[in-house]
Design a protein around this nucleic acid. Structure first.
Lengths: 349, 349
DNA sequence: TTGTATGCGTTATCAT
DNA sequence: ATGATAACGCATACAA
């Protein structure tokens, strides 16, 4: 019953930590009193409290959170599911989540899915198993619908950044104003005199990408837009623009709007490889304002997404309910975006 | 005793999930049997097992991990402490940790400290409270010594990336070969004909920074090195180089070695602002190979740190012992680095 | 002001 | 092949 009774069998096993009973015995009080000395949940005589605290210090007693969690029915931890933590956007978002959680005494368990559905499923099991009290879900890819549907009414979840089609009315949703961002770029290019643009879209099933393009069309003028669709990576942007240039006929655009910065960088590379100058011959704009955007040559005109705020808001909204043991009602939070006009766009000559 | 008996008081509280007892009752077996059906830890009659599984599915039963954790004395979660998850290096490291953990069925709780000692302390309490089975500690700053000392013999900890002075012999330590990296740069610049260099060091108490500079001195030749010390940020690099240029007398160096890439970028900016061309007039090299390094102009010569591998190795080493409930013995793992020679360094003219 | 008894939900031990 | 019971470590309702 005393700690540290393990016979050392050659390997240093973690020795049994002091329990509340050990403390109680050593302080000649009941475990209840120890508990209350530490929690302050009921008055304890000064003298008794001192004695208990001395023993606590001497034994290095720290309450086992596993036991607390079982008793309390909650863990004070939420999950953050992202596809790729090395992506700057999700890293910023993660910081926002972590900050909001930390403020309320919650921890954050990182669920990095690498876009792997199996991995995503495994992490969602943390919710079912109630290892986490809630989840900020920033999947980045859409096939998650079925996966999420069974959880939504029963567990606290906040969707960050990406709309999951069909589930809009059932959860907290925090996202940037993608459509307004697209409009900002459309207006910007139009003011520069451009009338024909190539719109480089991301995956067709991503609502965020579609919204960006839709906003762009609204402001730029639908009729001047040629649209191509690819993946949210540099290579894809390169290939799509290279293909568009390769058509044989005269170039049908004076500007390129890519639905994210990586594709925009690919677009710039493709244009330059084709002997065209950015922005002299063709203007290029992106979306996201990743760290690279401001540092490449030419600096990339893009739309800044408030990644940190998205994360922070999502977590704050979620915790507001989790904290009270409630399933959050549906709510939507559309965060404003800003145009960052840089040197990759210029007036049509 | 049956689930879902809560009177709806206006707010949707999380309804009580089915417990193993609920399943047992509905399947007319004992909780023990339910447990064994799910764990496979002992044979169960086919017919019984089917019946149990049907009930499990119907009630949507998932074992409460809080109860499991208490019973098992472990949570299958480790912590990852980093100063700033939006720093690319730590994001890569985090991915490595997460991957290694995931492979062994462990989760990772993200402890983002923002270099805040209080926050760091709070996260270390997760260890004392045994909410996590171990910790990968990548603090990035050194004052952690006292904070860590009391934990080291008693809890499984792996130090990643940064040596914590005085604790070398007590834990797992995984780090890049900073000294070899410094040597690579020194040799590289020397081969290019440089004989006088400005070494821009990071915080003096960071062993990694000191090692980089020391390696550089070894290979470049101690006598040709002028050293200045600052912080690991761009601004600091700028200021130090600007100050060195401002001396009045003739320039005392033809090359700059900065102990990290951010400072190197600052150095480039300072040189260019002073009317000097990189690499034409002065060569500049950094350390880390952050994503920006390859994309700035001129592309930065630097030393690639295997951030992912550092994280992965640290977690794998840690879990090897954690998994068996043992405190890991001390071990050191020095991972190789690679020189990335780019356009910011050139032959002395 | 303090203590006793009980329960949180699961798994391990020891029966049968 | 299955079940009863104890135990994990704590917090709390109830007693005194």
């Amino acid at each position: 019953m005393t700690p540290d009774t393990d016979a050392d069998e050659g390997r240093r096993r973690v020795r049994r930590p002091a329990s509340i009973k050990d403390v109680a015995a050593a302080a000649r009080v009941s475990p209840t009193t120890v508990s209350h000395v530490l929690s302050g949940n009921r008055p304890v005589a000064q003298e008794t409290a001192d004695r208990v605290r001395a023993v606590v210090a001497r034994l290095g007693f720290v309450p086992a959170s596993t036991a607390r969690n079982l008793q309390a029915g909650s863990t004070n931890v939420i999950g953050l599911l992202v596809p790729d933590i090395t992506n700057q956007f999700f890293a910023e978002l993660a910081k926002g989540v972590e900050d909001a959680a930390h403020d309320l005494g919650y921890g954050v368990i990182l669920c990095n899915t690498e876009f792997d559905p199996e991995r995503e499923d495994r992490y969602l099991e943390l919710l079912r198993g109630r290892f986490i009290d809630g989840m900020v879900y920033a999947s980045g890819s859409p096939p998650s619908r079925d996966r999420l549907a069974s959880l939504l009414g029963r567990f606290p979840i906040a969707l960050a950044d990406e709309v999951v089609p069909g589930l809009l009315e059932q959860t907290i949703l925090v996202t940037a104003d993608h459509r307004a961002g697209g409009r900002l770029v459309g207006q910007h290019l139009r003011e520069l005199g451009h009338r024909r643009a190539l719109a480089v879209s991301g995956p067709g099933d991503l609502v965020s990408s579609a919204e960006r393009i839709a906003g762009f069309r609204e402001a730029f003028g639908d009729e001047g837009v040629t649209e191509v669709e690819g993946a949210f990576v540099e290579r894809s942007g390169y290939d799509m623009v290279a293909a568009a240039l390769d058509g044989g006929g005269p170039r049908r655009f004076t500007a390129v709007f890519a639905a994210n910065d990586l594709m925009a960088l690919g677009a710039v590379a493709a244009l330059e490889d084709a002997g065209l100058s950015v922005p002299h011959d063709v203007s290029v704009a992106g979306f996201d304002d990743i760290m690279l955007a401001a540092r490449v040559h030419p600096p990339l005109t893009t739309v800044h997404q408030p990644a940190y705020d998205i994360g922070r808001t999502a977590a704050a909204q979620l915790l507001q309910y989790v904290h009270r043991g409630e399933v959050p009602p549906a709510s939507r939070h559309i965060l404003p975006v800003r145009l960052k006009a840089r040197a990759s766009t210029a007036a049509l000559r």
